Deep mutational scan, measured.
Amino acid sequence: IGSLMYASIFGNVSAIIQRLYSGTARYHTQMLRVREFIRFHQIPNPLRQRLEEYFQHAWSYTNGIDMNAVLKGFPECLQADICLHLNRSLLQHCKPFRGATKGCLRALAMKFKTTHAPPGDTLVHAGDLLTALYFISRGSIEILRGDVVVAILGKNDIFGEPLNLYARPGKSNGDVRALTYCDLHKIHRDDLLEVLDMYPEFSDHFWSSLEITFNLRDTNMIPGSPGSTELEGGFSRQRKRKLSFRRRTDKDTEQPGEVSALGPGRAGAGPSSRGRPGGPWGESPSSGPSSPESSEDEGPGRSSSPLRLVPFSSPRPPGEPPGGEPLMEDCEKSSDTCNPLSGAFSGVSNIFSFWGDSRGRQYQELPRCPAPTPSLLNIPLSSPGRRPRGDVESRLDALQRQLNRLETRLSADMATVLQLLQRQMTLVPPAYSAVTTPGPGPTSTSPLLPVSPLPTLTLDSLSQVSQFMACEELPPGAPELPQEGPTRRLSLPGQLGALTSQPLHRHGSDPG
């Protein structure tokens, strides 16, 4: 009997000691992992102490058991019943959930998450997105703005933001810190809205009876308010094209079509300037034949640059190039080494500058006005007194259609001029006259002087055409309008007829 009692007592005591040691061994194993994590990542002392304290409290609170892992091991129907039991206190005593059906309560219970916070733990920081609604079931918390405590909340209090009033989550206007050990039930806004969409009859009752104890939403960050730039940057990543407008005076608003859609830094370009900076079609017209890549860069430059609305530039004389043409100036200075066709295309550029300027006046029909002061630039669209967005969009579309028509007509005119030049060069190729044979009589004449090349004649003739079109064909006081194609086609051969009437002889060394 004594040996039996000794064996039973010894066996029970050893089993008890073994169970104690097993729990202690698990605790030390998990604690060792936490300390190894702290050492590996070199976490500083204040945060390291918070980690160790939280682990110790969580171990004593749950005995080292992962409740979520245990809950996920059950089937979904059983999980709903378990969640309904775990959140029964909240669902029974909170006013917004009263009167809900059994199915609605089960769906809500599945969406709730339980959070346990030790003292000093910050649940929400200032500036964080308010993605959830919090219900306090135990403990107390404090809300701070800077170093000032603005509120202390306790059991059955609710904090967050009214989700039904805002389409997008706002930002917190303060820090939420736990004063004691707290148990909180939180539900994400997407989950709550999903359940309320499934039960629309409960939705009206819920929003009407929901009383948020403390609204954390920062009202200064609401979209459309003066301080909402940061919020707009976070939620409006896919922005449309940006529009900046110059201020319109009362006198300017009476004149229709007073602005032109141009790229940034293009205030001095012609009315047909689009795409790359520098001139019509993204580059100076005089350098068009020598740089074919300008047409390839036109599309990307047009689509990537934001639109700006600026006044037209001052008018340019008909014979003056659009500006920024070092290529043609070098050719004029060193005409001995340049291609003979460069002079002809220089005359073509003069005609283009004249036609572009006159067509700009035809479509816009307003006098040039000086540029406004820099303080009046970049007025935002949302400022008071601005035109409605639809009106601005319609004006932009009208300007775009005008620019497209202008570009089409300029292309047709350019093709006409090039065809005339090619026809003239085919009839009378460039050549130098040879020395004529002296006559049989004693009164022999001296050799004839060489005839100037055709490109120079073409430049003079085209300059005469531009001056003739600019000065004589337009009646005084009438708006400057571009001439039609047949009129220009008839004027060019008439001007060139006198020049080509002389018999030109080919030089023996000319390969053409």
Rank of each mutant, 00 (worst) to 15 (best):
Tyr134Asn: 04
Tyr134Val: 05
Ser137Arg: 09
Gly139Leu: 02
Ser140Ile: 07
Ile141Ser: 01
Ile141Lys: 01
Ile143His: 01
Leu144Lys: 09
Ala151Pro: 01
Ile152Ser: 04
Leu153Thr: 03
Gly154Ile: 05
Gly154Gln: 10
Lys155Glu: 06
Asn156Pro: 03
Asp157Arg: 03
Asp157Leu: 02
Asp157Gln: 05
Ile158Gly: 02
Glu161Ser: 03
Glu161Thr: 02
Pro162Thr: 04
Leu165Tyr: 15
Leu165Ile: 11
Arg168Lys: 10
Pro169Leu: 04
Gly170Ser: 07
Gly170Phe: 03
Gly174Cys: 14
Asp175Leu: 09
Val176Glu: 02
Arg177Asp: 01
Ala178Phe: 02
Thr180Ala: 04
Asp183Leu: 11
Leu184Ile: 09
His185Leu: 07
Lys186Ala: 13
Lys186Tyr: 08
Ile187Asn: 01
Leu193Gly: 04
Leu193Gln: 04
Glu194His: 12
Val195Leu: 04
Asp197Trp: 08
Met198Phe: 10
Tyr199Phe: 09
Tyr199Gln: 03
Ser203Asp: 07
Asp204Asn: 11
Asp204Lys: 08
His205Pro: 07
Ser208Asn: 15
Leu210Glu: 02
Glu211Phe: 06
Glu211Ile: 04
Ile212Met: 07
Asn215Lys: 02
Asn215Phe: 02
Leu216Thr: 02
Thr219Ala: 12
Thr219Asp: 13
Asn220Asp: 14
Met221Val: 12
Met221Asn: 11
Met221Phe: 08
Met221Gly: 08
Met221Arg: 12
Ser225Asp: 13
Pro226Gly: 09
Pro226Arg: 09
Gly227Asn: 11
Ser228Met: 10
Ser228Trp: 07
Thr229Lys: 11
Glu230His: 11
Leu231Gln: 10
Glu232Gly: 06
Gly233Met: 09
Gly234Gln: 09
Ser236Asp: 12
Arg237Leu: 11
Arg237Thr: 14
Gln238Gly: 11
Gln238Trp: 06
Arg239Gly: 11
Arg241Ala: 13
Arg241Tyr: 10
Arg246Thr: 09
Arg247Met: 11
Arg247Asp: 10
Thr249Glu: 10
Thr249Ser: 12
Asp250Gln: 06
Asp252Phe: 13
Asp252Ser: 10
Glu254Tyr: 07
Pro256Ile: 14
Val259Lys: 09
Val259Phe: 11
Ser260Phe: 09
Ala261Ser: 08
Ala261Trp: 13
Gly263Phe: 08
Gly263Tyr: 10
Arg266Ser: 14
Arg266Val: 11
Arg266Gly: 12
Gly268Trp: 07
Gly268Arg: 08
Ala269Met: 09
Pro271Trp: 07
Ser272Asp: 04
Gly282Ile: 08
Ser287Gly: 14
Gly288Glu: 10
Gly288Asp: 08
Pro289Trp: 05
Ser290Glu: 14
Pro292Lys: 11
Ser294Ala: 15
Gly299Leu: 05
Arg302Cys: 14
Ser305Phe: 06
Arg308Gln: 11
Arg308Gly: 11
Pro311Ile: 15
Ser313Glu: 09
Ser314Lys: 09
Pro317Thr: 13
Pro318Ser: 11
Pro322Gln: 09
Gly324Ser: 06
Gly324Met: 06
Gly324Asn: 15
Glu325Gly: 13
Glu325Pro: 04
Met328Glu: 09
Met328Ala: 10
Lys333Tyr: 09
Lys333His: 10
Ser334Gln: 10
Ser335Leu: 07
Asp336Ser: 11
Asp336Phe: 07
Asp336Ala: 12
Thr337Leu: 07
Thr337His: 08
Thr337Ala: 11
Cys338Ala: 13
Cys338Asn: 13
Pro340Cys: 04
Pro340Asn: 12
Pro340Phe: 04
Ser342Met: 11
Ser342Asp: 13
Ser342Gln: 09
Ala344Val: 09
Phe345Ile: 11
Ser346Leu: 06
Gly347Asn: 07
Val348Phe: 04
Val348Ser: 06
Val348Arg: 07
Val348Gln: 13
Val348Thr: 13
Ser349Lys: 13
Ser349Arg: 08
Asn350Glu: 10
Ile351Ser: 10
Ile351Asp: 10
Phe352Gly: 10
Ser353Asn: 08
Ser353Gln: 11
Phe354Cys: 08
Phe354Trp: 12
Gly356Ser: 08
Asp357Met: 15
Arg359Asn: 15
Gly360Phe: 14
Gly360Val: 08
Arg361Ser: 07
Arg361Met: 15
Gln362Met: 06
Gln362Arg: 09
Gln362Glu: 11
Tyr363Phe: 15
Tyr363Leu: 10
Tyr363Ala: 10
Tyr363Glu: 08
Gln364Cys: 05
Glu365Gly: 10
Leu366His: 08
Arg368Ser: 10
Ala371Ile: 15
Pro372His: 09
Pro374Asn: 13
Pro374Arg: 08
Ser375Val: 08
Ser375Lys: 07
Ser375Gln: 14
Leu377Phe: 10
Leu377Gly: 11
Asn378Ser: 14
Ile379Arg: 12
Pro380Ala: 10
Ser383Ile: 15
Ser383Lys: 05
Val392Pro: 06
Val392Leu: 04
Glu393Asp: 11
Arg395Met: 13
Leu396Ala: 08
Leu399Glu: 03
Gln400Tyr: 01
Asn404Cys: 11
Arg405Leu: 04
Leu406Ser: 04
Thr408Met: 04
Arg409Val: 10
Arg409Asn: 14
Leu410Gly: 04
Ser411Met: 09
Asp413Thr: 01
Asp413Met: 03
Ala415Phe: 04
Thr416Ser: 15
Val417Asp: 08
Val417Ser: 04
Val417Ile: 11
Val417Lys: 03
Leu420Val: 10
Leu420Ile: 10
Leu421His: 09
Leu421Met: 04
Leu421Glu: 06
Gln422Ile: 03
Gln422Leu: 04
Met425Ser: 12
Pro429Ser: 15
Pro430Thr: 09
Ala431Lys: 11
Ala431Asn: 13
Tyr432Asn: 13
Ser433Ala: 11
Ser433His: 10
Ala434Ile: 09
Val435Leu: 13
Thr436Glu: 10
Thr436Tyr: 12
Thr437Ile: 11
Thr437Asp: 08
Thr437Gly: 08
Gly439Tyr: 06
Gly439Lys: 11
Pro442Asp: 08
Ser444Ala: 13
Thr445Gly: 06
Thr445Val: 09
Ser446Leu: 06
Pro447Met: 07
Pro447Ser: 10
Pro450His: 13
Pro450Phe: 04
Pro450Asp: 11
Pro450Ile: 05
Val451Ala: 06
Ser452Glu: 14
Ser452Cys: 09
Ser452Met: 13
Pro453Ala: 10
Pro453Met: 09
Pro453Val: 11
Leu454Arg: 10
Pro455Leu: 06
Thr458Ser: 05
Leu459Ala: 11
Ser461Lys: 13
Ser461Glu: 14
Ser463Leu: 11
Gln464Asn: 04
Met469Phe: 10
Cys471Asn: 07
Cys471Glu: 05
Glu472Lys: 04
Glu473Tyr: 07
Glu473Pro: 13
Glu473Thr: 13
Leu474His: 11
Pro476Ala: 10
Pro476Cys: 06
Ala478His: 09
Glu480Leu: 15
Pro482Gly: 12
Gln483His: 09
Gln483Cys: 10
Pro486Asn: 15
Leu492Cys: 14
Pro493Ile: 06
Pro493Asp: 11
Pro493Gln: 13
Gly494Ala: 07
Ala498His: 09
Leu499Trp: 06
Leu499Met: 09
Thr500His: 10
Thr500Val: 13
Thr500Met: 14
Gln502Leu: 11
Pro503Lys: 12
Leu504Glu: 13
His505Asp: 10
Arg506Tyr: 08
Arg506Val: 10
Gly508Glu: 11
Pro511Asn: 06
